[in-house]
């Protein structure tokens, strides 16, 4: 009987002395595996043009139908993307999305990928429908790094100011930098 008691207490003692698994989220964050499928990012070419051509193939491939694309014709003098067509509106319902990655698979220009952002909670449902501005890489000079472990998010965009400092969910792609 004593042997069992000692055995149990040994496990307790070992865990008391080991490093805790708990981290101080959100001030601290766990490293995200390199191929994790988090919130989407819409990419740009080096010259700043959007890669997305508004073809709606992602919307067609999406098994839950959470992508909405409205295309328009490019103005040749001020093109948004190379070629004739671009996405005038691009929205993803992040709550409905199942993060399967089919959209990235379908995209002919590799415009959309699933990024490392996994913390998608918010206080307002509407803010979980990401618009093109939210998803697009900023420019110039922006390069998304892989996961940014252990760093808190920068301040949220002013117009989307989070209701409490403990929920710093910014929705611009810049916040992964």
């Amino acid at each position: 009987m004593f042997r069992e008691l000692i055995g149990g207490l040994r496990i307790t003692m070992r865990n008391m002395l080991s490093k805790p698994v708990t981290i101080q989220y959100p001030e601290e964050q766990r490293p995200v595996p390199p191929r994790a499928r988090g919130r989407h990012i819409l990419h740009r070419y080096d010259n700043g043009l959007e890669k997305c051509i508004g073809c709606e193939l992602c919307a067609g491939a999406c098994p839950v139908g959470c992508i909405y694309v409205l295309a328009a014709a490019n103005d040749p003098a001020h093109p948004v993307s190379p070629g004739e067509r671009y996405a005038a509106r691009y929205e993803i319902n992040l709550v409905r999305c199942i993060y399967c990655g089919y959209c990235a698979e379908a995209c002919p220009t590799e415009a959309i990928t699933l990024g490392p952002r996994l913390d998608l909670a918010d206080y307002k449902r509407e803010r979980l429908v990401a618009t093109k501005e939210d998803l697009l890489e900023s420019w110039p000079g922006f390069r998304p790094t892989a996961a940014a472990p252990g760093r808190p998010d920068p301040a949220p965009r002013s117009e989307l100011a989070a209701p409490s400092p403990t929920a710093p969910v910014a929705r611009s792609a810049t916040d992964t930098a």
Binding site: I53, C55, L57, E84, R85, P108, T109
Partner: peptide, 10 residues
């Protein structure tokens, strides 16, 4: 082969 920007695609 520009189906993605072609109105007939689909």
């Amino acid at each position: 082969l520009d189906c993605p920007v072609c109105d007939r695609g689909g």
